[in-house]
Design a protein around this nucleic acid. Structure first.
Lengths: 223, 223
DNA sequence: TTTTATATTAATGTATACATTAAAGTATTT
DNA sequence: AAATACTTTAATGTATACATTAATATAAAA
């Protein structure tokens, strides 16, 4: 899922396609065929297909027999599911970190991420904010150390990325969200397990509800 | 991850290899090459490789460039991680079911599974018990409806399968586990959300701790 | 005999070839 | 013009071919 090498061309195709899907250059609903995609990537169908098989397992594309490759949209139902999983996993991770009584030095990645979130707010740079937010969530699970937590969350973040980017501009500025992240870090530092867990869980639940409300309000049935 | 078709040969290879890994016919540490595995499956390397790429993403095999295919062992650390994820996800699912106040008819799959667990205990048939247990956990997540919960849990169950089969014979008969499953169903029926969640969470935590204790006791450093 | 250099083998990573067949297009009939 | 049958096209699923190169075996040198 996230090893260093693999044969290069397969890896190249996987990374490039994933990036193009994330950035919406290959938008949901996009349809292609193997020969044309292989040509575009400058390789034969063999490594492309191996990459596509992986992207399909990641839930990003669908290979319809005899009909070609489709970039899958994110539906509100998908976002609901994704937030449910994150709500189950991340508060747990936070509680474990709090129980571990980590030093501020060890928590530096999280503290830095919150600082960058604040800076981004000051700069009114939503994209920077979103990147810092991603960073926070990733570092949190790296600190926890359960590789499966991390790979599951990474997969879900990849799936949700487009929807998050788009809705970021439709909601109020994430002051509250930023503050909540800081509060969570405080609780972790103080070793306040249940407080950390609860703040984070509420953060997740509210963030998910907000996002679904936006999708409903703007009738965004797929992204 | 679990669609109906895909080209048959790829799908055949994927299913057959997964089954052979589960059943320990391809034991951890097993080493093969693509030509010999393709020959054994009666197909060319092309579909085999696509299947292997998926099995690698599932964490069951590793394709080492130039060194061949290895069946990965399960380490105690893996079991720890797997149980952590299940402990995060399943109690959440149980709580949702309880909140939904399902009828006994709707809960039939769970009730049937517990009945089969009891029957298996009476018959002293550990394998039947393990199958009923698997069934319970799968039906639970199907009832919940979050496809991501189900696919994550399925992946983890696949990874943990060998270890569970082996340790099943090293622990006491699962009377307590069976009773706990029944209790959880009771709480779901009565709509007792927190009780359902807590019983299940404790069940998971105890089951995980027991399993790790067995691995330590018998010095099973990989399975 | 040990070490180093060279040759051989064989597995991977990738490209290409090809049979099958769904879909699109064309012709034929009404 | 509409419906049907036929033809063509082209994409997929799979097999095969081939260049590269790590690993092993063999030979030469110390």
């Amino acid at each position: 899922m996230m090893q260093k090498s693999r044969s290069s061309l397969v890896n190249d195709a996987y990374r490039r396609l994933k990036q193009e899907i994330r950035s919406n250059r290959l938008p949901p609903g996009f349809h292609g065929t193997e020969p044309e995609m292989a040509e575009r990537l400058g390789m034969s169908r063999t490594p492309l297909r191996e990459a596509l098989v992986l992207l399909e397992a990641d839930g990003l594309v669908e290979m319809k027999p005899r009909r070609g490759i489709y970039i899958l949209p994110i539906l509100p139902q998908d976002m609901k599911e994704i937030y449910e999983v994150l709500t189950a996993i991340e508060p747990e991770a936070v509680a474990v970190l709090a129980a571990r009584k980590l030093s501020e030095a060890e928590l530096k990645p999280l503290i830095d991420a919150t600082a960058r979130m604040e800076q981004a707010l000051d700069d009114d740079d939503l994209e920077a904010w979103a990147n810092a937010d991603d960073e926070f969530h990733k570092e949190l699970l790296i600190l926890h150390g359960n590789k499966r937590f991390l790979s599951i969350a990474s997969l879900l973040f990849d799936q949700a990325h487009r929807a998050r980017v788009i809705t970021l501009r439709m909601r109020e500025k994430p002051y509250r969200s930023t503050a909540e992240h800081k509060t969570v870090v405080e609780h972790i530092i103080k070793g306040e397990i249940e407080e950390a867990r609860n703040v984070y869980r509420e953060h997740r639940e509210r963030a998910g509800a907000e996002l679904l409300a936006i999708l409903a309000k703007y009738k965004l049935q797929q992204l």
